[in-house]
């Protein structure tokens, strides 16, 4: 079994977002970059499959030199090899899906794993687009995955519950929190990763789908007011305000 794990480098969730001078992109100053948390579940799942039934795990990201960090981490966690596709990995999901599809087709991958969305861009689009471009099955927002002989069974989160998707491999599976508990890299893993190389390739040219023309911060919320008094008075004042001022009820 051959598994491709697509990972994305994203701003840390504690980052304050500032708009760059171009008015349409993120100001990278002061941003701490991390692996998108959902991709950690994807990577962990790939490593568990490798440990369970044996598999070759290839980690891939699209980006510049700085994106090597997430690949080094993937190698330390247990990926066998890593690929840096040099291109814009932060932009249009359709373009990124085309880059990964162009790289992956004809390489004999049985399974493609990635996060259900890249934190920040929040498109939740790359996985299903990759599945379509490669003409393979998909299951998104997956919290449990079982592999059979050329088949998969996935539980995915839907409104108010979950549903079971069954299909044939190859498939694109996008991971959700709950799929597993990602491990930390061991010292042994970190040392072993130093001996592994990161393959580098230019991303294939793509057709643009969409682009961000303006990035803006949300308007500040108007100052609210404190409701004073003891608990019963506060409760009564709140319900009155929600009824009369906010007209929520």
């Amino acid at each position: 079994m051959k598994i491709l794990v697509a990972i994305k480098q994203v701003p840390d969730t504690e980052s304050r977002i500032k708009v760059a001078a171009d008015g349409c992109s993120l100001d990278p100053a002061d941003v701490k970059w991390i692996i998108s948390p959902y991709d950690e579940y994807a990577l962990e799942e790939a490593i568990r499959i490798k440990e369970g039934k044996g598999a070759e795990v290839v980690a891939l990201t699209v980006g510049g030199e700085a994106a090597r960090d997430v690949l080094k981490n993937a190698l330390a966690l247990g990926a066998d090899s890593a690929v840096l596709l040099k291109g814009d990995g932060q932009g249009d999901a359709y373009a990124v899906a085309q880059m990964i599809a162009a790289y992956a087709k004809d390489k004999g991958f049985d399974l493609f794993l990635c996060g259900n969305k890249g934190l920040g861009g929040d498109n939740a689009a790359m996985g299903p687009m990759l599945a379509e471009l490669l003409n393979v099955a998909q299951a998104n927002v997956v919290v449990k995955l079982e592999l059979g002989d050329g088949t998969f069974r996935a539980e995915r989160e839907v409104e108010g519950g979950s549903e079971v998707v069954e299909g044939a491999l190859p498939a694109v599976i996008t991971a959700q929190k709950g799929l597993n508990e990602p491990r930390y890299a061991s010292l042994k893993g970190i040392m072993a990763a130093k001996k592994k190389t990161i393959e580098e390739a230019d991303a294939a040219p793509t057709t643009a789908g969409s682009c961000v023309t303006t990035l803006a911060l949300p308007p500040e919320r108007a100052a609210g007011r404190r409701l004073e008094g003891e608990a019963p008075a506060q409760a009564a004042a709140l319900l009155q305000a929600l009824k009369d001022e906010a007209k929520v009820f």
């Binding site: 999901a93 359709y94 929040d122 939740a124 299903p128 687009m129 599945a131 379509e132 471009l133």
Partner: peptide, 23 residues
């Protein structure tokens, strides 16, 4: 942008060679 909508729309977009904006 429901569980089904978010699952099918990007796939349909890629099939159409179309850009996609989610949520």
């Amino acid at each position: 942008a429901t569980a089904v909508g978010k699952d099918v729309a990007p796939r349909a977009a890629a099939r159409l060679g179309a850009g996609y904006a989610s949520d």
